[in-house]
Design a protein around this nucleic acid. Sequence first.
RNA 1: GCGGGCGUGGCGGAACUGGCAGACGCGCUAGACUUAGGAUCUAGUGGGCAACCGUGGGGGUUCAAGUCCCUUCGCCCGCACCA
Length: 803
Amino acid sequence: MRYNFKKTEKKWQKHWDENESFKAEENSKKPKFYGLVEFPYPSGHGLHVGHPRGYTALDIISRKKRMEGFNVLFPMGWDAFGLPTENYAIANKIHPAVVTAENIKNFKRQLKMLGFSFDWSREIDTTDPKYYKWTQWIFLKLFEKGLAYKATMPINYCTGCRVGLANEEVVNGVCERCSSEVIQKEKSQWMLKITEYAARLIDDLDGLDYIEKVKVSQKNWIGRSQGAVVNFKVEQTGDTITVFTTRPDTLFGATYMVLSPEHEFINKNKEKIKNYAEVERYKLAAAKKSEFERTELSKEKTGVALEGITAINPMNGVQIPIWISDYVLVTYGTGAIMAVPAHDERDWEFAKKFDLPIIEVVSGGDDVQKQPFTDVDDGIMVNSGFITGMQVKDAIKKITEHIEKNNIGERKINYKLRDWVFSRQRYWGEPIPIVLCEKCGYVPLSESELPLLLPETDNFEPGEDGESPLAKQVDWVNTVCPKCGGKAKRETDTMPQWAGSSWYFLRYIDPNNDDFLAGMDKLKYWLPVDWYNGGMEHTTLHMLYSRFWHKFLYDIGVVPTKEPYQKRTSHGMILGENGEKMSKSRNNVINPDEVVGEYGADTFRTYEMFIGAFDQATPWSMQGVRGCHKFLERVWGLSGMVTADGGYSDELMSAVHKTIKKVTEDIDRMKFNTAIAALMSFINKVMSIGSLTRGEFKTFLLLLNPIAPHITEELWENAGFSGFASQSKWPIYDAAKTLDDEIEIAVQINGKVRDKVIINADDNDETVKEKALACQKVNDFLSDKKIVKVIVIPKRLVNIVAK
RNA sequence: GCGGGCGUGGCGGAACUGGCAGACGCGCUAGACUUAGGAUCUAGUGGGCAACCGUGGGGGUUCAAGUCCCUUCGCCCGCACCA
């Protein structure tokens, strides 16, 4: 009988649903395992074949953990606020909540179709007021602790649509929709002080089991650098300009200074700057440039000298000119630098362009007039007063001490990380629960007023001039101050999509709690997340933001752990059959519905895991899908070859134990492709023998169950095994039985395989050597040679060195 | 430019601390069974008639290198004037 996957898969999915088979237990004595996958944004396109790659992987791991006796929490939900839904709602005049509900319905159908063992009783939705009440609550706490504040920050502003744009809506410096110019427009926005957590966000990575590239990307993004701030006196004004440098050793080589065009010094000293008109012109030109233009590659350095003003190099008292240039960023360090053209590429370029002096202070490179020398490891200080002759590293230490002793500056750790712009000028997001009172300023709502609901409206069009659509809801906007009862206006910006996803893993733990975001007892049992898998594209920001929120919640005593996720892995992208990124425009998109319709969920799951190394990008192959389908049909056929024997046969004994070992270890290491290959090899062996015992069949079904849960459950039932495969114990192997009694090893002569010989596993080296030397072929090769040495590698090979 | 990853048959990919390169699957070839096969089964399948040659290229270490060292080329991803 042919395997009817449609009927079988439907049957078991219904069974799991009705029995809530994968519901996590409360108050369990079992050890816990919290497996997490990134909850999807329910787009109108439905599930992409990329989503199930990570989901299947953690589903396999979760299913195996259950079989190994763990109480498993493996939940799913919806990251449902967001731009595409809002845009669709505007275009089709449907409320985003309606669109969201439809999309969720479709996503849920697709996820159920794939047989994932999610605990659906804990499903969450970030757009549900019962959920976003707590997102808003966290914001209030951040505000209360001074970590949420207002600042004027630029937004992307489309001059054509006259609306604010998200970064992803700006393509090559123009508006994605109308191709008009996008400029930076200043707006007062909510910010979160993530920078306050910069050090901990780096340092606490040490205790975590994240794949290396995730750690590296977190570290790079935070961008810690060790250095010093140094004060330069300005001759004509009497004030000082402070710079940050990682190379205080090169201070003697600082031949000029550069300020960013936005530096406050310039405004403050207008009168003293003789060419202020020119300076002002440069400032305006820099301000007009978009972020895109300013960071454009390989452009020439520009700048203007501040005439009539000079700074004094604190080390040697030399007067040096001060310039402004947009290669110095106002947002990093102090917005001002000391320029050491001999030993910094950017400064060197600038010095060459404007003919500024280049003085060598570190020797070891070529002529610094021809190219800068930036090597820190083996350079010796020259022309540098009391540090001359020192190694760079010692010089840094020495001069930093000197700077601190003489109050010229101090050591300083600086971070690239900036505070988080938390405002979005959009409708479909969490309202920020703050009002602006004419008298009291920014006043938080009281907790009892949460959730602050989005106003009902059918007008989601972006506001003019970059305002949020909410600004048009005057009835909603006009309110009273919670503090003084006077006239006040609500904040009209909403939160970014990152907000809801920054804490969602906490809500799964206690999804229906009306009194708190999650109860402490439950948090204590389930946290931290034991294993979190997601896409590489979220490894930097999402991970950083949610770690930041978690640390904050830890600080205020809401969660019991310092870190949310103990282990983080990432899956590679699935490419189209042509090897390119899947996209509609490339016409290479694979639809999971179609694949499942033709081959079934088990085939789909098996193929997604067999496709290649889990963490690597791999192209899809419909042929490969068929191969996996064939494999499952062979599995189905196995049931006709089963003998009554409940144990393992001598013939398959070591194969069974080896397969258990291989599959067990490979799943733990996410080597799903080789785990499946091992199961295929086992079947090939059974096929060549022609039969297998009931015991072998049972073990095989259990090993395959996490990967292909439907077919194995059906075969399990048909064979009359008790209970359900998915609720049975994971098989155990006996290490001693994975070893064969007889082993075939290679016999090499001078490193080349010349023959093979069968030895007993317990033969000693001397015996193995004798057996190897006894081979006919070996003797033929050795006839005219003299044996120099014989190397025996136990259980692997014998290498005869001969001349 | 910086950071990360990768380069192995016609294709996707295996190969733990150096120890028989190419597991497993696809594709291909031949055969069997079939009214038929894009179904199934069996056998074969890195290249070369061979000696031999083969893990992007060139050196090296070693009895032994896909794996270690030096050097060079190419591709992908992320970040980008971070002082």
